[in-house]
Design a protein around this nucleic acid. Structure first.
Lengths: 121, 121
DNA sequence: TATAGCACTATACTAAAGTATATCAGTATC
DNA sequence: GATACTGATATACTTTAGTATAGTGCTATA
């Protein structure tokens, strides 16, 4: 993979682990069954809790709540509470969350090529 | 995210799922605890089974065998058996496996930025 | 003959991820 | 007064991912 060292350099397990850590971070942040659906829904528009629940088919309120919290902790999602009756809660992508755009696009490009390759075999 | 439609277009759950599928494929292919370590080890050089087992700290032969099979099924890894005594088996990345390079690099870039952001907070 | 290396496989287990179902407090509508 | 909406939470369960440990058949070396 991309490196300043030559192709033949042997990496120690420790160096390999260091190389992998930031890649793993991305998988840990957007991995799991529901994170991408949530991120992509929010990339189109701000959603309320129930809107997301309806938009994302099959998700339970437990998972939605859990994953939104995780995404908020990682700084990708913003949660705003409005003092209405009954209370309104809006979830949106932060600029930081939006910056995942190009990562998702690169993954999608490769994934589409993969799908074509598989279906042509 | 990247789309031909305007920002305000509301996507149906079905359209969203279709958009996500190829991205999920990538996560399914390189996700899990051991896939990246294996791919990255093989990106530096061809390895034999025991070499990988020694290179990737903590992996058990069961997981190594299981994940190599998966990667082979997905066309990322090539398995070559040599008729020596005892038998020699070499694992290498296919060109297709190498094409993940730019995906991993993009993820790594974002991940490194993320790590800097987290440590500066 | 004992030991070690090679490339695995089998069985049994634990831990993590996700599901199902019920419920909460508050308000508005029928 | 019953029902339904809001944004969730609690408990119990299943399913999937990963671990631990032992063992296979083969050969070369001590």
């Amino acid at each position: 993979m991309s490196t300043k060292k030559s192709e033949t350099t042997i990496y120690t397990p420790t160096e390999c682990k260091k190389f992998i850590l930031p890649v793993r971070d991305v998988i840990d942040i957007i991995g799991g069954k529901w994170r991408l659906p949530i991120i992509i829904a929010l990339s189109f528009k701000i959603h309320r809790f129930k809107e997301l629940e309806r938009q994302i088919e099959g998700i339970t309120p437990r998972m939605l709540s859990k994953e939104l919290k995780e995404l908020e902790i990682n700084g990708l999602v913003n949660r705003e509470v409005f003092n209405t009756m009954p209370v309104t809660v809006e979830y949106s992508l932060t600029d930081y969350g939006k910056s995942l755009d190009k990562v998702i696009e690169t993954m999608r490009d490769w994934g589409l090529t993969h799908r074509n390759k598989i279906s042509n075999e």
